[in-house]
Structure formats: structure tokens, C-alpha cells
Design a protein around this nucleic acid. Sequence first.
DNA 1: GAAAGGGCGGCAAGCCCTTGCCATGTGTTT
DNA 2: AAACACATGGCAAGGGCTTGCCGCCCTTTC
Lengths: 332, 332
Amino acid sequence: MSRPTIFDVARGAGVAISTVSRAFSNPQRVAEETRERILRVAEELGYVPNPHARALTSRRTETIAMVVSDITNPHFFEIIRGAEMRAKASRFTLVLVNAEESARIEMEQIARLARSVDGFLLAASRLPDEDLLQLAGTHSVVMVNRQVQGIPSVILDQKEGCRQLVVHLASLGHSSVVYLSGPRNSWIAASRWQAIRDSAAACGMSALRMGPYTPTVSHGGAAADAALTTGATALIAHNDLLAIGVLRRLAARSVRVPEDVSVAGFDNIFAADLCSPSLTTLSGVHADLGRSAVELLLDGVAPGPRTGEAPRLVLPSQLVLRSSTGPAPVAV
Amino acid sequence: MSRPTIFDVARGAGVAISTVSRAFSNPQRVAEETRERILRVAEELGYVPNPHARALTSRRTETIAMVVSDITNPHFFEIIRGAEMRAKASRFTLVLVNAEESARIEMEQIARLARSVDGFLLAASRLPDEDLLQLAGTHSVVMVNRQVQGIPSVILDQKEGCRQLVVHLASLGHSSVVYLSGPRNSWIAASRWQAIRDSAAACGMSALRMGPYTPTVSHGGAAADAALTTGATALIAHNDLLAIGVLRRLAARSVRVPEDVSVAGFDNIFAADLCSPSLTTLSGVHADLGRSAVELLLDGVAPGPRTGEAPRLVLPSQLVLRSSTGPAPVAV
DNA sequence: GAAAGGGCGGCAAGCCCTTGCCATGTGTTT
DNA sequence: AAACACATGGCAAGGGCTTGCCGCCCTTTC
């Protein structure tokens, strides 16, 4: 015996299938009494509407896709987690896809899912602006940790966060800072560098960008070596993973942190508090990024007139001071 | 202009829609030459089959759902990651759902998705065996980190791993070990305790189970306090998070690790190598769990005769020795 | 050269719902 | 009492695809 369909419910309740359909998807269109009867019959029969049949005509799927640029990066998991929880709260299903740091794969995956989801969450997308704008023309899209004019987005406040971080370093007496940059086409890396450079200028510090580096622990070694050649006393790594890699290499080279060199990262991952020395980092509630992004997407997906402007959410970030930053060494 | 359908392609290629359909889903059923022509037209038109229409008749969705018992637990992310990558390799889509440690929610989510996916990956399911067996009767199911008679599963080798861990502690001179247990209805917690108890007995050690504890850092404090009352010199925590919490509390209470007490965990999370002292832990390639689980599921989903037995994969685990375990203190 | 077989394409019946439009019945207004 | 508005339910046309079955034609076989 196969699963009951809308016909079985209609027969059981003595109504037309259209009425059953509306009892589920358009409740106020059906008399209270009728609806209750239908729901009761459906319950008894164990009827669940077939989502595909539903999607076929209604073009709504109650599913959203989250595309992350690199699923191996633990930083995204908080975002994914927040997104999943928020999606679930609205009875939406979350599909997870990995772009493997490739714009081509990202595009392929999006094309593949275009018909199966109501919208896309693009986390740290590597696609060029044009592609994104085109996509946003035909689908609901929300960017996470990237801003593109005209597309809704959610980011953590890099500007203010970087400013605080630079001011912190400046007030410790550092006069030069190196930013160990993340991937070349990472919007957030560009945005961090810009904020660091501007803030450094405002503090009278010199700022230098090095890299790009793949932001993993294993690439921290090269980054540290390169940074040491500059003589800078303050290092800001693109993220905590890279920063931890830097710390390791510095330890291996007997460079003391923070006595000789100060190091800071981004994301405040769990390990940032455990490594030695513990890591000063720019923190933020990443789960909220995912949550807010879904919220924005659901707003956009909902029928009704668009508000004129694409919303740009900027969530607060906060500086977490630990022991990897300290006073600049006294000049020799 | 709306998206092209199979009709447009059929017209363009001068064939019937059934032929177009087969050109995509049953290539060897169509002459090579015809197929090429169809694919070329489809390409030109930008035709992509509508997955919902497809699913409606074929009952295949090329989608699998991964249900995790608690999405806030970082341990799962490796598994999710492995699963996503493997699914993608077979052009399957992965849906992620969170059971929030609740059997009820887990069941609801499964019911909701039952029609939209080809199968379920249940990671650390909290459902009773009966429910799982019933589910496995109607759907393709693969269990991750749990074994149920008759259902395909993938686990890390707890038994041998725990044995090695206990032998390691025994050979360091410890004569008593405490297992700080994970959640009550966690299969893996039960399985670990059983392996620890048996191995301890074989080594002439006494073993004690305490808890259950929610396996997070914050619950490690209570676990540590409780464990200290027993006078045991070796502590095995349900996972690394709990172990790190234990380490923190011990440090706060000035109990030296490993001089006074040895501590070990499970999972070898990234932070295990960074905490102080670094943590001895039972490691395993968790991404492989996800990968293998998807593989098993795809095997099960594929048409064709079932092999008689439900496969039970046991992936190797390995003991990673770090500095949180050491010789037992000399008795006073 | 006739019969048998295989490869290939087409027909048409679904798969299970949503939704625009119409029909009916009831209550309200003038 | 006529005219109307509104609430409610039904009809039927899809939505875009898969697949069992049939039939055609070209090979092969004896």
C-alpha cells in the first residue's frame, strides 16, 4: 500500500482535492470546520503532501541552499549552524554545498540547484560581482561576509573591528603592522586590508600587506617567515588558523610572542583560547551571520513588494584581547 | 521568457520528448548520434531538467539527508564535510538537518523529508532501535557512529581504540580508570564504556563510569570534580571537549596533569593539540565516516538486488599520545 | 529469401499537486 | 423584495518529466 495522496484525503473528507490543497496551503480560504475535518482525515491516513508535486506547480520549495566557498574551513560551520537553525524554525530545509574555492564549481552548483531551491545563501562567494548581480536578478540571493551593491548581505563589522585592533596595537607602541592576507579574490580579505591600512594611517603606523596566503595552520609558517623579514613588530593574520600557524613558526624560531612580536587573528575560533600564547582576535557571533542571512533570504523569498534598497546588515564584532599581543619591544 | 522545457529541446532536435528524456537519464537507450544532437540543442537552449518534475515520476531525487543529533557539536562537522564531498562527487545534493538531541524532533524531520530525499544518513541517532528498523524498512538508511542489527552502518573502531587507550594507561602504572560518560542514550557512549570496562578488566584495572555528562567544555568542571572524589588516577572523557573542560578544572584546582592525574579524550579535535597540556586522544578520520556512509547509502539507493547482509563498516581509529597522560603517581 | 531479432524512437498515461475561475448559498443593504 | 457582497467549494487545466509498451526498420541467420 503506497502513501496516501491528496485524493485519498479528499475522498475521506468528502470534499474536492482543491479544498484539501487549500486546507494545507491557504487555511483562511477554507471554513474552519471543513479544515479541521480535512486535517483529521489527513492525520488518520498519515498523509503528507508530496513536496515535489507541490514545487512543480507552485514553484516554491521551502528549501534554501547555502554555498560555502570552502567547506573545510571550520569558520563556516558556525554560520552553517546558525543558518540551519533559523531555516528549521521556518520549516525550511537547508541544502549544503561546497564551492571548493572555485568560482567555476560555485557556478555549476548554483545552476544545478537553481530549480530546486527558493534562494541562495552565498558565504564568502568567489564569484565576480557581475555573475552575482545576474544571479540576483533571477533568484533570491543573500551574501554572507561579502557586500555587493544591490544584493542583500550580512557581514561582521570589519571596519570598526580592524580599527579597534589597530588602535590596540598602536597604543601598545607598535609603529608598523603587517597584514597576512587571505585568498586573492576574497572580499573579506580586501576589506580587512583596507580597514587596517586606513586605521594604521590614522594612527601614524605603517602598514604592509603580504600574501595572499591560504588561511590554514600549515601556511602560517611561510607567512611568519615572510613577515619577520619586514621587521614589523605587529602581525595581523587573515584568520585564527593562519595566526596559529604563525605562532607555531615563531615559537620554532624562538621569536617570543608577545615580547618580540605581537600576533592577532580573526574569528575567535575555539582553539584561539587554547593555543599558547592565547590569541588576541577579532570575534563576532558567526552563528548570527547565518541566522540573519536566512532571515533576509526569507524576507526576500516571501511574496509581496520588495523594499527599495537591498538590506546590508552589519553585525557587531568585538576585539578579544588575550596574550598574543603586548607592548612593542623597545627599539635597540 | 521562461526556462526551456523538455518540449523545447525535443522540437529543436526534431525528436519526441521521450527521446530527450532518455538522452539524459538513460543514454545507452538512444543512438549516439541522436543523443549528441539532443545534448547540443539542450546546451544551446540552456536547458536543465526540472528536478521536481523528475522526482515526481521517477521517485528519485538525487538528494540525501544527513541528520545529526546535535549540530552544535563540532565533531559532526568533519563527518558532514566528508559526506558533502562524497555526495557531490556523485552529483547528489546533501540536506542538513539537526535533531537537537531530541528523538521527537529527529522523527519529525525525517517524516518531513521522507518524500524529498533518496535516503537518510543518521549520525549518532537518538532514536530507539525499533523506530530505526521501521524506518529502514521503508527508506534507505545508513547509521553513523551507531550500530543496529540489520541496518548498514559506519563506525570508528571503539573497541580496539579503547583497548589501546586502556593498555596505554595500564602500562603507565594506573590501576583505576574513570570513564566520564556522554549522553544517556548515546550508543557510542555505551559502546565506549563497555570497551573500557572489558579492557580494564583484562588489564587488572578497576573501571568506573560516571555521568552522563553533556560533552561540552563547560560540563567538564563537574565531571572533573566528581572524578576526583574517586581517587582514580586516570580519566577518560567522552570526548575532547569534555576532556578540555576537565583539564581546565584540574588546572584551577591545582591538580597537575599528568603528574597527579592522566586525562584522555576522543575525536582528536583540532584544539586537542593546542590545549595545555596537549591531550592524549583516540583519533580517527571522521571525514571518512561521512564519506563511507554516503557510499553505503548510494549502494543501497542504487537499483539492483540487495546483498543479503547489511554492511557494517568499522573504520580504524588510532591512539594519539600527547602530554596529558603519564605515569601514575607513586602511591603515598 | 523469409523469418527472427535487436536497436531505436514515439505514444500516452501517469506522478501529485496548485490555482484561476466559476457556481452556489448565505447574509446584508436599500 | 431585489440587488449585491462575500464566503466557500468545485472544476479543470496545467506544471515538466519518466517509462511501459508498441512499431518500425535494418541486420542477421538458416
